[in-house]
Computed example of a mutant assay.
Amino acid sequence: MQKRPIDKSLQVRLVNLVVDRKFKTLPAMTLFKIQDRQPAFSEKSIKGRWGFSGEFGMIASPSVPQPVPTAALGTVVFDGNGGCTIAATVNVNGKIFGPLTSKTCTYSVNPDGTGNSVAEFSGAPFDGPTTVAFVVVDNKREIRFLNTNTVVAGFTARRQ
């Protein structure tokens, strides 16, 4: 049987019904209305390796007495179950840190494609975890991040 494209408003399913004790079957057509909605996102939606870059940001107080410029790039691997690994190189006011590898990293994805992640690094230029909010866009090919701690910056990741 050759597959045909499914109409967005209706789905046709062939249902075999058992009609007697001898298990004779007759095909029957059943129509189901499909709501016009996007499929829900989950941790599995972003599973895999992503490359990211953040062009210009600032580390703000209380992490530093005066704001300093920062930029970063690297990779993040999402395991599909809420765990991740990040490898990054960071430029803070002209001083290079890295490559840095996360010692812990977790993430969650909401059904609408938004989510958040928390990672900790050894040797990072600032103390404490790195926290971000994100949104999955472009048919799950891109993630846009916003730092939610003392680093004022955004960055973008694309599937590798």
Rank of each mutant, 00 (worst) to 15 (best):
G54M: 05
E55P: 14
E55H: 04
F56S: 12
F56E: 11
G57F: 06
G57T: 01
G57Q: 06
G57I: 03
G57N: 10
M58D: 06
M58A: 11
I59M: 07
I59V: 11
I59C: 01
S61T: 12
S61Y: 09
S63P: 01
P67L: 03
T70F: 12
T70I: 14
A71G: 15
A72G: 14
L73D: 13
T75I: 13
V76Y: 08
V77K: 13
V77W: 13
F78A: 04
D79I: 02
G80N: 05
G80L: 06
N81L: 12
T85R: 15
A87L: 07
A87W: 01
T89S: 05
V90G: 04
V90E: 08
V90M: 10
N91I: 06
N91D: 13
G94P: 07
G94F: 01
I96E: 04
L100A: 02
L100F: 09
S102E: 04
S102Y: 06
K103L: 11
K103T: 15
T104A: 09
T106R: 14
T106Y: 11
Y107P: 01
Y107G: 00
S108C: 06
S108P: 02
P111R: 02
D112K: 00
G113H: 07
G113D: 05
N116L: 08
V118C: 03
A119R: 00
A119P: 10
E120K: 04
F121R: 03
A124Y: 15
P125C: 04
P125N: 01
D127V: 05
D127F: 08
G128Q: 08
G128V: 15
P129C: 07
P129E: 11
